[in-house]
Design a protein around this nucleic acid. Structure first.
Lengths: 343, 343
DNA sequence: TAATATAGCTAAAAGCATTTAGCTTTGGAT
DNA sequence: ATCCAAAGCTAAATGCTTTTAGCTATATTA
């Protein structure tokens, strides 16, 4: 009693009618093709009875539309991306779209080969956190000629492509100003050594602020590989040793902050008495940590909503009418214990 | 200069040969079909030059194989699942498989309709954390007649289906015994009110242990909806008020523990002096929390490896030769500060 | 020289759905 | 009685690939 795989052809035989009729009924095109109500009813009933569902591959092959959206993030196990992924998936499934996701691991070659791969799967759209070094022309061509691409989290300054990012510059300023307003005036900045736009903007905000307040910029750039291999602690230790005058540290990402705070505790540093701490991008850990950590919060659900709305809006627009849409969402400040001035 | 979409047919025309020849070359079947080396070279060169890649939809439609594996978890934004997802994706992409993921949200109806949906996409296999109430017959039929299914994290006792789970019973015993060995003898157990196998096994371990040590079982079962809506704090508060004699709490999941620890701190409870704490399933937070929290650690990468190996092994086996494979992986104990007896 | 084997390639079917163009039948108008 | 329009349905092409069965030369054998 192996379950028969129904095809539209088989149904046509069963019912003694043509496949065309069935296809019309199934796709809501029965009326406009003058299929009689009796026939519509007959088809619908039978289809329901046997639980037939059309083969999506054949459908996609014919229509050129796969209802698949590729979601490529740096790393899905990063809670920020996982959260966005979930929100996007929920929205997409309402519209009968499926999400294929994959991690770029910040590898531009892997990313390109993935895009090619999914392109052959006739993916309808791409949402991507572009890794450093992604070939600009490659993205350009895709943007112009193929499936819509929306970059997020960061953008590529050289490419005129739709994107959804947050106000990294203003957000960093917001956080730094809060530190200054709280009486911290010797702020160190720990970031990744990265060219990506979001990191660039955060750093720039810090540098501008230093210039405006006649502060000496104290910057530590941690290479990506050093972070991956856990070697960042030496770098941070050196940085702290060389700059004992600092009264606050701004971490440019939450994962840097998590490692950094652990290290500070190991060094016996009392937060915020010895050193105030603030991080860009919130994290569950910051809320529950002792002391709790102040952070700049990205509006996750707004990001997800924007991404998916922009995607569907683009998909609905004729390919030659499409224009890049660039969205920058505001961030907010979550003030907790780690920036409370106790002196 | 819109990029031409190449098809095998177009290449055949360009080269003045048949599509069959090209297909043979592309699929490594040239030799066995006596295509001359010169011809093979000619085709390969041209294909490479124009960067042609076959349409996967058409290929899948013809071969019945999509190279797509569906990964359905309760919630991708749970770090445990996100981590496994990443590991699986890495393995799968090595073998040219793609992962489609989606969240069940523990909704059996959504899960079934998703499975149907992806079934029509000709997904080659399913890896699923089955939600409570998932129709047993539905899964049974699928297991027997369709794409291979591997359950993980929990299994359905009524269904004879492949699964990869961890030793929940032994793991819980391990944790509880550590508490007892450390001198805690009045251990409360806080869990979700759930029928899922993993929760059931954890609870059973606690009950057996109580019986063996003549301990009175003190159990709090938090309904899922209460947790979702944040109402669990009242329940936990009541539980603590009613059982002031407790000297340790075992949380059956990490997210229960995270909420619970926050609440304990709010009540002014000192961990572990007033109350020792242990959690099932590790979490970054436990490592960085003050005090750090002891936990039972699931072997994530072993789980991922098993899942993907089992999946490919099953896919390679003839459908009538397949037998359910049931894997139970051991867990380990991560002893931290929250179970240190200070008295 | 005729029959046969082999090398080298291809035509056409199949996989499943959508969609265009067109074929019957019926009813109404003239 | 004849013609036309509309109603109601369908044949066949199409999307792109894989794969079976088979065709045509050339080479080998008897």
């Amino acid at each position: 009693m192996a379950k028969k795989k129904y095809s539209i052809k088989k149904i046509a035989e069963d019912l003694g009618i043509s496949v065309t009729t069935i296809s019309f009924v199934l796709n809501g095109k029965a009326e406009e093709n003058r299929i009689s109500p009796a026939m519509i009813e007959k088809v619908k009933r039978h289809v329901k009875k046997i639980g037939y569902q059309p083969n999506q591959l054949a459908k996609s092959l014919r229509t050129g539309k796969s209802n698949l959206i590729v979601f490529m993030v740096e790393d899905i196990s990063n809670p920020f991306f996982a959260n966005i992924a979930k929100l996007i998936e929920d929205e997409a499934s309402k519209l009968n779209y499926k999400i294929i996701y994959c991690s770029t691991n910040n590898d531009p070659d892997k990313t390109m080969s993935m895009i090619n791969l999914f392109g052959n799967l006739q993916a309808d759209g791409f949402i991507i956190t572009p890794p450093n070094g992604l070939d600009v022309n490659f993205v350009k061509e895709l943007c112009e000629e193929q499936a819509p691409i929306i970059l997020f989290d960061r953008y590529l300054p050289e490419v005129d492509c739709s994107h959804v990012v947050i106000a990294n510059y203003e957000g960093t300023k917001l956080g730094l100003n809060h530190l200054i307003d709280s009486g911290f005036h010797k702020i160190g900045f720990i970031t990744l050594d990265s060219d990506q736009s979001q990191m660039h903007d955060r750093l720039e905000a810090y540098q501008d602020l230093c210039a405006n307040h006649s502060m000496t910029a104290k910057i530590l750039k941690i290479p990506f590989y050093a972070f991956k291999s856990g070697e960042e602690s030496n770098l941070i230790n050196n940085f702290l040793d060389e700059n004992p005058e600092l009264d606050a540290i701004f971490f440019a990402t939450n994962y840097l902050a998590i490692r950094g705070i652990k290290l500070l505790k190991d060094r016996g540093v009392i937060i915020p008495n010895d050193l105030a701490v603030m991080a860009f991008d919130d994290n569950d850990f910051f809320q529950f940590s002792t002391p709790s950590i102040s952070s700049i919060v990205q509006p996750k659900s707004a990001i997800a909503t924007q991404l998916i709305e922009l995607m569907f809006q683009t998909l609905e627009t004729d390919i030659d009418q499409r224009k890049p849409v660039k969205v920058e969402l505001p961030v907010s400040l979550n003030i907790r214990s780690s920036t409370k001035n106790c002196n």
